Simulated assay, not measured.
Amino acid sequence: MKNERYYARICWNSKGWQHPTWESCLTETTNTYAHIHRYGHEEWLFNKEMQVTDEVDGEIYQYGFIQPLSAECHIGKSLHVLLWTLDNNKKKLVVAEVDEIEVLTEVHRKIIHKKYGKKFYELMKNDLLSSSIDTSDLDGLYENMYLVNVRFKLSALNIYNKPKTIPSDSAVHRNLRYKLISDNLIAERNNNTNQKNKKMGCEEEILRRGKEFVKVRREHNKIQNELIYLFTSQGIDAEKEVSHVDIVATNKNGDLTFYEIKVCDSAHKCIREALGQLIAYYYRAIKKPTKLVIVGNCKSKNDDIKFIESIRNMTKLNVYYCAWINEKLTKEI
Rank of each mutant, 00 (worst) to 15 (best):
N3I: 08
Y6R: 08
Y7H: 14
Y7S: 04
N13A: 02
H19R: 14
W22L: 06
E23S: 01
E23D: 03
S24Q: 07
T27H: 14
T29Y: 11
N31L: 06
N31D: 12
Y33D: 08
G40S: 03
G40Y: 05
E49G: 01
E49L: 06
Q51C: 09
V52D: 00
T53F: 05
D54T: 12
E55V: 11
V56S: 02
V56M: 04
G58T: 12
I60G: 08
Y63Q: 01
Q67K: 15
E72W: 04
H74E: 12
I75M: 10
I75A: 04
L82Q: 04
W84D: 01
D87R: 01
N89K: 15
L93I: 12
V95F: 07
V103W: 00
V103D: 00
E106S: 11
V107S: 10
I111P: 05
I112F: 04
K114I: 01
G117V: 05
K118L: 09
K119Q: 11
S131K: 15
S132Y: 05
S132F: 13
I133M: 09
I133K: 05
I133G: 02
Y142Q: 01
N144V: 09
V148W: 09
V148F: 12
L154Q: 14
S155D: 13
A156C: 11
N161C: 05
T165Y: 06
T165V: 09
I166E: 02
I166N: 01
P167A: 04
P167I: 09
S168I: 12
D169R: 12
D169G: 03
A171Y: 08
Y178S: 03
I181T: 07
N184T: 06
N184F: 10
I186N: 13
N191W: 11
N192M: 07
N194L: 14
Q195L: 12
N197R: 10
K198L: 12
G201T: 05
G201E: 10
E204D: 10
E205Y: 10
R208T: 14
F213E: 08
F213W: 06
V216Q: 07
R217V: 11
N225K: 11
Y229A: 09
T232K: 09
A238D: 02
E239N: 15
E241P: 11
V242G: 05
H244S: 13
V248F: 02
A249N: 04
N251A: 03
T257Q: 03
E260P: 05
C264L: 09
S266V: 06
H268G: 02
L275M: 08
L275G: 00
Y282K: 10
Y283T: 15
K287R: 15
L292R: 01
V293C: 02
I294Q: 03
V295Y: 03
G296W: 09
S300H: 13
S300G: 03
N302S: 13
N302K: 09
D303Y: 13
D304M: 08
I305K: 14
I305L: 13
I308N: 08
S310K: 07
R312G: 04
N313A: 11
M314P: 00
T315F: 15
L317P: 00
N326I: 15
L329Q: 02
K331P: 00
